[in-house]
């Protein structure tokens, strides 16, 4: 009897030991996978900073003439120089990127907020609401190049072509809005980032308790009064987060722009000091496309690593700053709600 118990205890012990060893190995493997993922991030950032920073730290050496002041590579990157195949440097590209994302933000913010409001405050649970939700969920994962194709076909050729026929017939056959340009690129990016704004805003709106809306309605406020005076003010941080995330995503997109208006070199900036201040029909330069162009048309490929990394670093920094802002905003928002017990 005690022998059976002994044997049983022994076999349990051995199973347990085997299980423990298996667990140790498997958990170690998943931990290693995590380390590898982190390592890949560190390596990428390391290369970017090392290669880009190294190039930036160097000054333009032999190429400048004797009587010219030696330009730092930072200046070369910004304003252009002999080492840059593209004249003008990265400055107009930065301006282009900023103007593009600004126009995009102006378009996408109201649209995204309105759709999110519809989904949370107006829509019922009917099939069309579900369809809209599925559509928006899917929009987020549609390849960005498809948005470019759509932008070209619909905005540029259909809408732009109509506009030209209606208002700029005098310029035809030279297209005004019937060709790729800033407006269409902004619109394309706006649609591309629309799901980001919608999802973030919706999340913020859903986080607000129903009681808040009921409280307002019970005081005799109409639905729109409730939205404007209670719901939207309370959801502002989420909306801001959504918009910042959208801008961060848009700033890194290049593929769709290649179809709707980005160029290697634009002779003038899309903004000016005189009216109309912003030239929506112009083609523009873009930081991401600048990186692409430098890489694609690099004559001696290795020599270009530095400058590509430097301009890439610039782009990553811009996007990282935006993402960080969104992250902090969300953290603050979460803390506020935790304190108030809404969550």
């Amino acid at each position: 009897m005690s022998g059976d118990l002994q044997r049983m205890r022994y076999s349990i012990e051995s199973v347990r030991a085997r299980e423990e060893k298996l667990g140790a190995v498997m958990s170690a493997m998943t931990a290693v996978a995590t380390l590898l993922a982190l390592l890949s991030v560190v390596m990428f950032l390391g290369f970017l900073i090392f290669l880009g920073g190294d190039w930036l730290a160097n000054a333009q050496s032999a190429t400048s003439g004797v009587d010219q002041p030696v330009k730092s590579n930072f200046e070369v990157l910004l304003w252009g120089g002999a080492e840059l195949a593209v004249s003008g440097g990265v400055f107009p590209a930065i301006v282009g990127t900023i103007v593009l994302t600004l126009v995009m933000t102006v378009i996408v913010s109201p649209l995204g907020i309105v759709v999110a409001l519809y989904l949370t405050e107006y829509a019922g649970t009917g099939w069309h609401t579900r369809l809209l939700r599925i559509g928006i969920q899917n929009m987020a994962a549609i390849p960005s190049i498809i948005y470019g194709v759509f932008g070209l076909a619909f905005f540029v050729y259909v809408i732009g072509g109509r506009l030209d026929n209606l208002f700029f017939a005098g310029n035809l056959p030279n297209p005004t809005f019937g060709a790729p340009g800033l407006l269409w690129a902004s619109l394309t990016l706006a649609i591309l980032t629309l799901p980001t704004v919608i999802v973030a805003t919706e999340e913020g709106l859903l986080r607000l308790p129903l009681a808040l809306r009921e409280g307002s309605r019970a005081l005799g406020a109409t639905r729109s009064e409730t939205i404007f005076r209670v719901v939207l003010p309370a959801a502002t941080p989420s909306i801001m987060t959504g918009i910042i995330l959208a801008v961060a995503r848009a700033a890194g997109e290049v593929a769709p722009l290649m179809l709707v208006g980005v160029v290697r070199y634009a002779p003038t900036l899309p903004v000016s000091v005189e009216a109309p201040f912003i030239h929506l029909e112009q083609k523009f330069m873009h930081l991401g496309f600048f990186v692409y162009d430098l890489t694609m048309h690099a004559p001696g490929s290795e020599g270009r690593v530095g400058i590509v990394a430097a301009s890439g670093l610039l782009l990553v920094l811009v996007i990282a700053t935006l993402n960080l802002a969104a992250l902090l905003l969300r953290l603050r928002l979460r803390r506020t709600f935790l304190r108030t017990g809404f969550e």
């Binding site: 990428f44 991401g288 990186v291 692409y292 890489t295 590509v308 890439g312 990553v316 996007i319």
Partner: peptide, 10 residues
């Protein structure tokens, strides 16, 4: 959030 153009360029 890394732009793929920068990853691909490097």
């Amino acid at each position: 959030s890394f732009p793929t153009v920068v990853i691909a360029g490097l």
